[in-house]
Design a protein around this nucleic acid. Structure first.
Lengths: 342, 342
DNA sequence: CTGAAAGCGCTTACAG
DNA sequence: CTGAAAGCGCTTACAG
């Protein structure tokens, strides 16, 4: 039953390191934590002892004494399968994990409870983390606003319902994303540009749609038609069908995510509509959905891994109580491929 | 600087709960840990107090006292971008995280050092975890064999170099995987079946190849040709090119992963070879690479999320010192789609 | 610059 | 069944 006891074999302790170096554990601790008030020779002896026994500080003891856990939680929406199926999220996690590995913080995955914010709250307290990263798109994220008042929290998307509270968001300028893709379609000479938007109960969904509008209006073009999708391939397919069934005569289509674009592409093919000849398609996300589609999709590269890293960097600074400089804008690049001709 | 101190606002402690319930913290602790030696009425009072103040145990203190961390590490290969780009791994992580959320254990992501096993070793000790899950395919994984002697470790793939040591592997029967896909091709009436294998320095790569051989030999067919890939789309494309350039006249192709199959499909199309008419294609992994390929790919569904869950379940049992029953075989299903005709 | 002591918040023999 | 006490392995004022 207490096999867990015997699982940890021989782990040297601070006291042993100190004894080996001939100092008190207080001093050994100071060396480990880089205190300036230690003699050079002492530092050397302690470090030698550490190296000799392969000392690694016990996290739990350190956390308890410091009252901080050196752990950041990545909150995962309850519908984990869908979440992980989206390469977008995998990329964010990758970036965050990568950045974390360059710090003292470790990343832990916590699955949130969608319909019970209190449970999630508990989870975070149970998890005893120093900060949290929030990626969910939907209502749940707004319940984190409250949490953000007591714990460093960084959002990957702006939660809906602006309330004036100061929250930390690391995200691209989604209006610019929509405008960039749409402008490219315009530059390609297209004039009848429809769109498949993201969910309109998310700020990203609204903003990319707004970007489409802005670009059209700046070019004096009309808003041909827009249908709402849910960021999944089947949602994109359904939206494409609705557009076509409504008789929209488009020569271009801006799809707010590559997953949806993949679905839409299938419908266009099904209906005998050629891409890019009949309809040029531009989308968002530079991942497998845009590169392995046929034709390959012109897309806005969101540099998603960099975003994950930036989220992690931001939460670490919040935890440390550092001053946050003006939110660095995340980069945005248009990657031109076959789907918008050449 | 010590803003982290003020970050945690008001967190009730065991002692406070105990006081509120009118018992000692020893007793309160017993209630929390489900000790049988407590009066019913005491249990009720303590639980009421817990609910009232929203008490959540401090993980660090508990870990320190119990000498166990309730944390399991998922080791991520250093090349994180490639790793996370493979939906296979995302799915394993998903399953493991999901299972973890139903236990007291939490999952933390640790990035391993490929060329410095000692560093990884340190990482695990620094991470102070109770167990580890290993997913990497290559040599690095063999360095974990040693680790497995002192820490509960579960492998997602059998590390190369059998040495008779007892290690815990949760994986499908990869020989069966190769045989299942190949047999399907045979059942479809194909007789000239080539293969694109996984890396042959991995046991999974070897075994799927062996499965192909077994099925062919059982059917009295010859081994037409095999090329090695690296599980990436470009690796699959390159292998397909080598096969074709060598003049192999196949009527079917077994590709050991969907990512490679996606790449191979592009090459076949490029060369004007029709799928499935000229060449039927069967692969492995039921994910976006098989469903969004065109034509959609017949594949062996590995139930990868279930595998992640099983890995987590296994490591938890190891940690608890439980007796492991005979390794439950992971399920395996053939999903028939367009790429093998009908 | 260094050490003795207290304390972080739990768990768990040991008595009773 | 319950409580007082010791201890888990660190950190950090407080003295010196």
């Amino acid at each position: 039953m207490n096999a867990s006891r015997s699982a940890q074999p021989w782990v040297p302790t601070l006291e042993e390191v100190a004894a080996l170096a001939g100092v008190s554990s207080s001093t050994a601790s100071r060396v480990i934590n880089g205190s300036p008030r230690v003699t050079e020779s002492t530092v050397a002896r302690v470090n030698a002892a550490i190296a000799k026994v392969g000392y690694v500080p016990n996290r739990a003891a350190r956390s308890l004494a410091r009252r901080s856990t050196q752990t950041v939680a990545m909150m995962i929406p309850e519908r984990t399968a869908e979440f992980f199926a989206d390469p977008y999220f995998a990329e964010v996690i990758q970036g965050a994990a990568m950045y974390a590995s360059s710090t003292e913080y470790s990343l832990t995955l916590l699955i949130e409870s969608e319909n019970d914010p209190e449970k999630t709250h508990q989870l975070l307290r149970r998890g005893n983390v120093d900060g949290a990263l929030i990626l969910s798109h939907h209502s749940a994220s707004s319940s984190y606003r409250e949490l953000a008042r007591t714990l460093p929290v960084v959002f990957g998307v702006r939660p809906p319902g602006e309330t004036g509270e100061e929250i930390h968001v690391v995200d691209v300028d989604n209006t610019a994303v929509g405008a960039l893709a749409t402008q490219h379609l315009i530059d390609r000479g297209r004039r009848r540009i429809a769109t498949i938007s993201g969910p309109l109960d998310t700020t990203a969904g609204q903003e990319r749609l707004q970007g489409w509008r802005d670009a059209l209006s700046a070019a004096g073009l009309e808003e041909l038609g827009s249908e709402e999708g849910d960021y999944t391939p089947s949602g994109g397919a359904a939206a494409a069908r609705r557009l076509l069934d409504a008789g929209v005569q488009m020569d271009a289509l801006f799809v707010a995510s590559a997953q949806m674009a993949a679905g839409a592409l299938g419908v266009l093919k099904e209906r005998g509509i050629r891409v890019p000849d009949d309809v040029a398609v531009a989308t968002v996300d530079n991942n497998v959905f845009s590169t392995s589609a046929s034709p390959q999709l012109t897309t806005v590269d969101l540099h998603t891994a960099a975003k994950g890293a930036a989220m992690m960097a931001t939460v670490v600074r919040l935890i440390r109580g550092e001053q946050l400089d003006a939110e660095a804008a995340l980069p945005l690049d248009l990657v031109v491929r076959e789907s918008t001709g050449c």
